[in-house]
Design a protein around this nucleic acid. Structure first.
Length: 270
DNA sequence: ACCCTCCTGTCA
DNA sequence: TGACAGGAGGGT
């Protein structure tokens, strides 16, 4: 489910309850997630919870057998959810993939489609995303121009790739291109200087606005504490095929690019 | 640079 | 019954 703003929301909401907790035991319920490294986790304290691209990253202290730190990463993919046991959410227990029992409560990993994964690492180096986080200081206009220069790929699929920018997904790419007035089918490398300028600032603006609204939640989705995000109220084009463009009232179009839906206004996006 | 696939669920 | 769903690795 989550793109950058949703993962950021989950991390912020897990932080106060999880930081400082000690891991008592680990149960992997989905054989595909099984890893011998799970035995290294008990006894460790959760020092910090951060977002690494679209991943949730738990920094773990050493324990009495091993003083070196460890990192536990979750990638939620499409339908993964991290939920603290203290909140009573209506989850289908069939989709429970892993459970961390803590000295206070527990952390549950649910995943309906089971695309998600978890990873135990003794160095964060190997998990550092290749792409730049668009909310970091490294994401400058000059950097965006550098990354995009010469690319013949259409701009929407270009934005979805995680090896240049990390964190954008199918919702926010459509929203960002609408806010930038750029047609999703444009060749990335063909964007003019003023278009790149708008693209750069709208990437940041939309992501920050979405985080402020705790992300986008459809229908019954709830975050780690049972709250729902509200950015869906602010969506301009995503999922709005045939509905009026907020700008010109023309119909929102849906097209498919690389087997994924793109939503846009052909009058406002050139 | 693209297409398929991994899964399970919902909706027309 | 088929299309589609917030992701991304692997193969070509």
């Amino acid at each position: 489910m989550p793109e950058l703003p949703e993962v950021e929301t989950i991390v912020r909401q897990l932080q106060p309850g999880l930081a400082g907790c000690r891991i008592v035991s680990v149960e992997i319920l989905d054989p595909k997630l099984e890893t011998p490294a799970k035995n290294k986790l008990p006894g460790r304290k959760i020092l910090d919870i951060t977002r690494l691209g679209k991943q949730v990253c738990l920094e773990l202290s050493g324990n009495d057998r091993d003083e070196m730190k460890l990192w536990l990463l979750f990638h939620l993919r499409m339908t993964g959810r991290l939920i603290t046991h203290s909140c009573s959410l209506d989850q289908n227990e069939r989709h429970l993939r892993a459970r961390l029992v803590l000295d206070q409560g527990s952390l549950l990993f649910y995943d309906m489609r089971s695309f998600g994964c978890l990873l135990v690492l003794d160095s964060l180096q190997e998990a550092l995303p290749k792409g730049i986080d668009p909310l970091s200081r490294r994401f400058t206009r000059r950097k965006l121009r550098e990354l995009i220069n010469g690319s013949k790929q259409e701009i929407k699929p270009w934005l979805l790739r995680q090896d240049r920018l990390v964190g954008l997904g199918n919702i926010y790419t459509s929203e960002i291109l609408f806010a930038s007035g750029i047609d999703p089918r444009r060749q990335a490398g063909s964007l003019k200087s003023d278009e790149l300028h708008r693209l750069h600032s709208q990437i940041r603006r939309i992501l920050l606005l979405a985080i402020k609204n705790c992300g986008t939640t459809f229908s019954d989705f709830q975050d780690s504490q049972g709250r729902t995000g509200s950015f869906q109220r602010l969506l301009s084009v995503y999922g709005k095929t045939g509905q009026p463009c907020p700008n010109c009232s023309g119909p929102i179009q849906r097209i498919v690019q690389q087997q994924r839906s793109t939503f846009f206004c052909s009058a406002c996006q050139k």
